[in-house]
């Protein structure tokens, strides 16, 4: 598993597609309105949006992420880092922020590569 994360619009997808030679057809794009498990793909893009969908639907995210990880040991996961702002006023967004933090920490632990993007520049953390 690989994890590529960073703030919004920092060039995460562009980097992962080039570094891991992935074409557009091999990308699964998560949506905040779709609770379905991400389909098998080389890149699962914006996992944080799937987590938001789960939270909106009242589904337990820790269990879902754990199941997701079992089935995606070779996947590159891309996520927006949403950890560094003000605590959101909306309860669901607060839950989301914490769930994404737990999920990315768990995924990073199991990944053989962890990369953070900053203004288009990758830094390999693991």
């Amino acid at each position: 598993m690989k994890l590529v994360f960073g703030g919004a619009y920092q060039g995460k997808l562009e980097y992962a597609m080039e570094a891991y030679e992935v074409s557009e057809t091999d990308i699964y794009r998560c949506s905040e309105d779709n609770t379905d498990f991400p389909q098998a793909a080389k890149i699962v893009y914006e996992l944080d949006k799937w987590i938001l969908a789960l939270i909106k639907a009242g589904i337990d995210t820790d269990t879902a992420i754990s199941d997701f990880m079992k089935n995606n040991t070779d996947t590159c996961i891309i996520a927006n880092d949403i950890s560094s702002g003000i605590v959101p006023y909306e309860p669901q967004l607060r839950q989301w922020r914490e769930a994404v933090g737990r999920a990315l920490a768990a995924i990073a632990k199991e990944s053989d590569e962890v990369v953070r993007l900053f203004c288009g520049i990758p830094t390999r953390l693991v």
Partner: peptide
Amino acid sequence: YIYSDAMEYDELTEQYRKALAQIDRATV
């Protein structure tokens, strides 16, 4: 660096964030 918070912004603010990131990346 205004890209790492857990807010859902209105469309205009989101456009502003995106535009700033474009400038940052081109400048870098």
